[in-house]
């Protein structure tokens, strides 16, 4: 395959970036998308040029490090996969590929295709945990949890925090991410004690970080590599409305 790659290049977070075009020959269909970028970078380094910076880690679709908006879709054209699990066979017959970083005010570009996703960490720090005393591990059957609730919590916990939902949403909303985190803990008995404060604090942090707001377009669930659905956003709405109308604390 011979490709024309249109890639966002940006020197650092303060510099103005631009799309730059590279021609890459020798791409095989069996290569993963990131291997294709590795190939490009090898050529750029050989030519004493600056390689394209992009995030990656496990390359197994489970860590949430890789990103990229490919031809206008977060994690590319294939459903329910991360960019590292996307293969070049998905681009058969195409010669032009546009590669851009996640774009949101809350995810500033650090360099090229790398964005700072620490806003998600701050949302988690605001309430995405349960407070327990340290000590011995609790016996497995101390808390009885119905299969239904366990499944619901597990579905939500599948979120790897990659940020594709924010990248694809026309409003750069983080409500699918926050909804998944809130649903995960609100579905389990361990999460009940801090349930109200959690949702209030996480939603407030989400707002303060400058994310947009859901307008129910469903694009987030369509690109989520873990197929997390917008029913989690509905659950977030229920939890937030109930908590904000019944809690008097300022949290």
């Amino acid at each position: 395959m011979k490709l024309n790659l249109h890639i966002w290049r940006q020197k650092d977070k303060n510099a103005a970036g631009q799309m730059k075009t590279y021609t890459l020959d020798g791409v095989e269909e069996s290569m993963s998308f990131l291997e294709m970028l590795d190939l490009l970078n090898e050529q750029l380094i050989a030519a004493k040029d600056e390689p394209v910076n992009f995030d990656h880690d496990c390359r197994e679709g489970i860590c949430g490090a890789c990103s990229l908006v490919i031809n206008g879709t977060a994690h590319g054209p294939q459903e329910a996969v991360t960019t590292c699990q996307l293969h070049m066979r998905s681009f058969k017959g195409q010669s032009d590929i546009y590669i851009e970083p996640w774009r949101a005010k809350a995810f500033p570009v650090v360099k090229d295709l790398v964005v700072d996703r620490s806003a998600f960490d701050r949302i988690i720090q605001a309430g995405g945990f349960i407070s327990v005393n340290a000590g011995g591990v609790v016996d497995a059957n101390t808390f009885l949890i119905s299969k239904n609730d366990a499944d619901k919590a597990m579905d939500a916990a599948a979120c790897i925090g990659c940020g594709a939902c924010v990248a694809q949403c026309k409003n750069a909303s983080a409500m699918l991410f926050v909804g998944a985190k809130v649903t995960h803990l609100a579905s389990l008995p361990q999460g009940q004690v801090e349930k109200k404060e959690r949702v209030l604090r996480m939603v407030k942090t989400m707002q303060d970080e400058g994310f947009g707001n859901c307008t129910n377009t469903l694009d987030c669930e369509a690109v989520c590599p873990k197929s997390i659905g917008v029913s989690h956003i509905a659950k977030l709405h229920r939890e937030f409305l109930a908590a904000s109308l019944t809690t008097t604390s300022n949290s």
Partner: peptide, 21 residues
């Protein structure tokens, strides 16, 4: 919502979103 994405994409597709939405 407009403030949440100051820099627009060069190429952007609607995946599940409708024209109406």
């Amino acid at each position: 919502n407009q403030r949440a994405r100051p820099q627009k994409y060069a190429v952007k597709k609607r995946v599940k979103s409708t024209f109406a939405a």
